[in-house]
């Protein structure tokens, strides 16, 4: 699916547009960035409730294209600017982590780390 589909499925607000036409196949949901760095391979979307600039840096190191902030959390301007500089999409959804991940999995996104 495209990032624009992720936004539609999660009924999300687009905080930073990035490239909404980018194709994504895998995602990861975590508030622990160390876990994201440890277990993620070829993931494209990061769902998190963590709100600091290291979320963007972690996504950057992992070559991720899209960050989704769950539970309607609003990141500050530093976070958004960092994402903008890196051409990443930032979305905000009212859904909680479990529900947001479930909706995306149901629509075809996978974890990417293991055979599913």
């Amino acid at each position: 699916m495209k990032i624009s589909d992720v936004a539609a499925i999660l009924d999300a607000q687009v905080l930073v547009e990035g490239n909404m036409d980018t194709e994504v196949k895998t995602a990861c949901g975590s508030d622990m960035m160390s876990d994201v760095l440890a277990f993620v391979k070829d993931q494209s979307v990061l769902l998190t409730g963590l709100m600091n600039p290291q979320v963007v840096r972690t996504a950057e190191m992992m070559d991720m294209h899209c960050i989704v902030f769950v539970r309607d959390k609003v990141p500050d301007a530093t976070v958004l600017r960092l994402a903008e500089d890196r051409d990443m999409t930032v979305l905000q959804t009212r859904y909680r982590m479990f529900t947001a991940c479930g909706k995306l999995y149901d629509a075809g996104l996978r974890g990417g780390c293991e055979k599913e």
Binding site: M32, M33, T48, N52
Partner: peptide
Amino acid sequence: QAGYSTAPDQVRSLGFGAGMGLPNMKK
């Protein structure tokens, strides 16, 4: 060792300190 950390709770609230840093670097 994966999971071993001496980081204070405040660091965990920032998303790190899960004891994965050095194991990740090695990996």
